[in-house]
Simulated scan of single mutants.
Amino acid sequence: MTIHSLYIYDRHCACVYYQDWHRTRRPKPAADGGLLPGVCATMSASASAAEAASSNALAAAFGSPRNSLLSSSSGVVVAEARSPLLPTLAPSAPVAPQQPGITSTGLPFDEEAKLVYGVIISLRNMVKKLSGKDEQFTAYRTSAYRLHLFETASGYKFVMLSDPGADSLRFVMRQIYVGPFLDYVVRNPLVSMDSKEHGIDNEYFRMAVDRMVRGLSVFS
């Protein structure tokens, strides 16, 4: 069993935070202007363009399109270089950098975030209509994953995707809320709450969430 990803939505229906751990199919970077700044650096269009420019600069500096130094979100550094003893060989076509074992879903991240939020709202409304106001939608399971939902009184929605065999993770999201979220986001005067212009751009919060999730017994 394992944990795949975490989304946080504010009361304006916007995704203000994203972090993933075990995803073999990652979405494409969001379209320009489709994602709030600070939500996730690896999923923003500007970060993708900056990474591509950096790779091109490195290739030009070393004189070969196959010389590249790429850093992934997992901290793994991949280097590839052609032998200087073969300068007369025609350079092969450049290959798009990709972390081993990671494929693309073919869906931009901003569209994926909207789909996840839409599923949550639809199922929550259905549960309320079928079971009454006292019932709450907290999770659903498919053959590929399980979605967990924790909603705060202020309207923030914490959504976590895990292995389908995992137990309820509402307590984990609640601990993230009462711990790192309150400490580094709510009580931080430098973080603008209920902002429609910026996501949760706080590295201390991101590191605290990562440390908390990796310390769980379900994480593997």
Rank of each mutant, 00 (worst) to 15 (best):
T2R: 09
H198V: 15
A79H: 01
H12I: 05
P87D: 14
S104M: 03
K28V: 12
L169H: 05
E80A: 13
Q175W: 01
A93E: 15
Y9H: 05
D20E: 13
Y117P: 00
G155M: 01
L86K: 04
V213L: 10
L70H: 08
T152I: 05
F137C: 07
F205I: 07
V77Q: 05
Q19H: 04
L216I: 01
D183M: 10
S104F: 07
S54R: 02
M207R: 14
R66G: 13
M193H: 12
V159I: 09
S71E: 15
S122N: 14
L35S: 06
Y9T: 06
I120P: 00
V77K: 03
A139I: 00
V218A: 10
G199C: 08
V172Y: 00
A47L: 04
V78D: 14
A113S: 09
R66C: 13
L107D: 09
S92I: 08
L69M: 13
L147I: 13
M126I: 09
A41P: 01
M207E: 15
A90P: 07
R206F: 06
D32T: 14
Q19F: 02
E197I: 08
I120M: 06
F62T: 08
A113W: 00
L107Y: 02
G118P: 04
A60T: 03
G215P: 02
S92F: 08
L85Q: 14
N202G: 07
R82L: 11
V178D: 15
A41E: 09
F158V: 09
A49Y: 01
A144H: 08
A166E: 07
N188R: 01
E51N: 12
V77A: 06
T105S: 13
G63S: 13
E51Y: 00
N125D: 15
R170T: 08
V213I: 15
M193K: 10
Y17N: 06
F171R: 04
V127C: 10
A52V: 11
L85I: 12
Y18A: 14
G106D: 12
L6D: 09
S195P: 06
I200D: 09
F205A: 10
R66Y: 10
D32K: 14
V76A: 15
P108G: 04
A53R: 07
A31G: 11
A208N: 06
V127H: 04
K129H: 05
R23I: 11
G215L: 06
